[in-house]
Amino acid sequence: METKSDNYNISFFKPTTELARINRNLTIKLLLIWVIAIFGFQILLRIIEKPTPEPAYIAYKQVWDKIKSENASYEENQVFLKSALSVLGKLSVNTDDKIILDKIVSSVSYKLIPEEKKENFINEVIEFNKIKSEITSLSDNKYVVLKTAITSEAASFLGVKDYSLEAKLIPFELIPENMKRIDIQNNELVEGVMSKYLIHNQSFLTDFKFLSFPFHYFYTAVFLLILFVGICWFYCYKTDKIHEKLGIEA
């Protein structure tokens, strides 16, 4: 009875028929390709990656100590502001991090405004924030006028064009109550936020371009899907051939 039962044992790793053996070998080969192509590549990316700072981070690091100790020159404050704005211009910034950066951007911006314009500028920002929460249309005249005025002032103290991304961001980042005072505790959090958004895991696989894609992105988003279809096609083709050879009905 036991011998009879053993004759009917099925095990992927111990094939008892010619078909099962061929199928096992084909399956193992294709699964190996599948595993290495998917997980092997991601592991490789992980192994060779290096934390790579954006130019904005390098610029920020050069001036950050002076900003913290409030010894920064006008130009150094400009450099810091541009770096912070390059983070705030990112879509991925979460609300908590945005508030941390907004506070320091507000106080640094205030320092750059000429003395005679400071009071007027703060009033404009207060008024803009009030209108922003009330308007129903972005073409509201008062809203547009104030936004343009703040943008224009920001462009002049940042040393950029009116239409630049940095200047356009300023009206949405300033917190009036933080403009005149320095929040030391907040400043300590800035370092974490800056490194979080400005340092990335990069390597030659992410820097190399293929069909204009960063190579790793092309590989994962496009090539792997082609490979999956290819593996499936090959498996079906080979299986049909094997069945034909062994005279097995499909």
Partner: peptide, 28 residues
């Protein structure tokens, strides 16, 4: 127009709040 945003394309970027382990675990 957009500010430089490598976090959009770089793997398990700190800005995404997701890690290498989570990437692999989700795919698997």
């Amino acid at each position: 127009a957009i500010s430089p945003s490598p976090e959009y394309a770089m793997p398990w970027d700190p800005a995404s709040g997701q890690t290498f382990f989570q990437f692999m675990a989700i795919a698997f």
